[in-house]
């Protein structure tokens, strides 16, 4: 996202302020839409709110990253305790949003495969999106008070020194235990391999190879990709969070994150759209499918490249 920032002459704090409205305001809209669709038993609207939750979870990634980067631009301030508290809240909100997005995706996957979303999944998405919304409002309010002194409660006292909150403990846990870093990296690679393998198979079918496999059969593999993505996301964020400045200093790190979010189009395309689902054995894929297949393969390769290059570009 640094190239976007340069284009508009913005720093990471600006980008964070633009991005943070998506998960916060978005969570409110998606939750409202989901409740309405469930009460009115409107299946299409329910699907739209699930897609919205999934997209918001993806946008949570750059929001979190730019937030950590924004801290470096406002380091000379007296209210760092408030920034620390905001970070603690953000970690919780991010994890909850990621879980909500995953549950929403599973709902979409189920509705395709079994024609309906399982009851337990509906309950899980409702509960998770409500808790996420609460965490987002909490995080967002604190974030707002960082940049707007005038909306702070009258007489609000901010301690001079930040307490070691959740974020500090998490950081210490990763850095103080010698095994956490190698374990995190190994998990990051394992998750990547799961995601990449499924992406290869799905994209081969999308570009017109392996035509004798009906797409519905490959649809069964998608949870492996999402599980892999989840493993890589959690392990990656854990490592990022322990030493954000190291990653922010790498110019291509933001490009990797940007490509990662865009490449997720593939997941959306093969989960939501009828075109792929209806590709039977022998069917020729349409141009859109071929384009997405080629483009996302290139993007995932770039993600791999920029990810593995991090230690050499510091």
């Amino acid at each position: 996202m640094n190239f976007i920032a340069e284009l508009f002459d913005m720093n990471y704090a600006h980008v964070h302020i633009v991005l943070n409205h998506f998960p916060t305001v978005g969570a409110a809209i998606a939750f409202g839409l989901l409740m309405y669709s469930l009460l009115r038993r409107h299946a299409e609207l329910e699907e739209i709110s699930l897609v919205l939750l999934m997209v918001l979870a993806l946008l949570g990634i750059p929001t979190f990253i730019t937030g950590a980067a924004a801290e470096s631009t406002i380091s000379v301030r007296s209210d760092t305790a408030l920034v620390e508290a905001h970070k603690d809240a953000a970690v919780i909100a991010f994890v909850l949003l990621a879980l909500t997005g995953t549950a929403a995706w599973l709902g979409l996957w189920q509705s395709r495969r079994f024609k309906r979303v399982a009851m337990w999944n509906q309950v899980a998405v409702c509960g998770l999106s409500l808790v996420t919304l609460i965490a987002m409002v909490w995080t967002g309010t604190m974030g707002g008070e960082i940049s707007h002194v005038e909306i702070r409660e009258e007489g609000m006292v901010i301690p001079a020194e930040a307490e070691t909150g959740l974020n500090g403990e998490l950081e210490a846990w990763v850095l103080d235990n010698a095994w956490v870093w190698p374990a995190g990296e190994t998990l990051h690679f394992t998750g990547m391999t799961m995601l990449f393998g499924v992406a290869v198979l799905v994209n081969l079918r999308l570009v017109g190879l392996l035509r004798s496999i009906p797409f519905r059969a490959l649809h069964r593999l998608l949870p492996i990709a999402i599980a892999g993505f989840g493993i890589s996301l959690i392990s990656g964020m854990l490592l990022f969070n322990a030493n954000p400045m190291r990653y922010i200093a790498v110019p291509t790190f933001f490009l990797k994150m940007f490509l990662l979010v865009v490449a997720a189009i593939l997941v959306l395309y093969v989960t939501v759209f009828d075109t792929t689902w209806n590709l039977r054995a022998g069917d020729k894929p349409p141009v859109v499918a071929r384009t997405i297949g080629v483009a996302t393969t290139a993007m995932w390769l770039c993600v791999l490249y920029f990810g593995r290059m991090i230690p050499f570009l510091e």
């Binding site: 690679f189 799961m194 393998g197 198979l201 059969a217 490959l218 069964r220 054995a281 593995r308």
Partner: peptide, 27 residues
């Protein structure tokens, strides 16, 4: 080495999972 790993392990594991009975609708 990382790209090769992703291709070899990622793809062959899916073939193995299919052989083990997972996603049995895939020919």
């Amino acid at each position: 080495h990382t790209v090769g790993l992703a291709v070899v392990v990622g793809t062959s594991t899916l073939v193995a999972l299919r052989v083990l009975g997972f996603a049995s609708t895939i020919p």
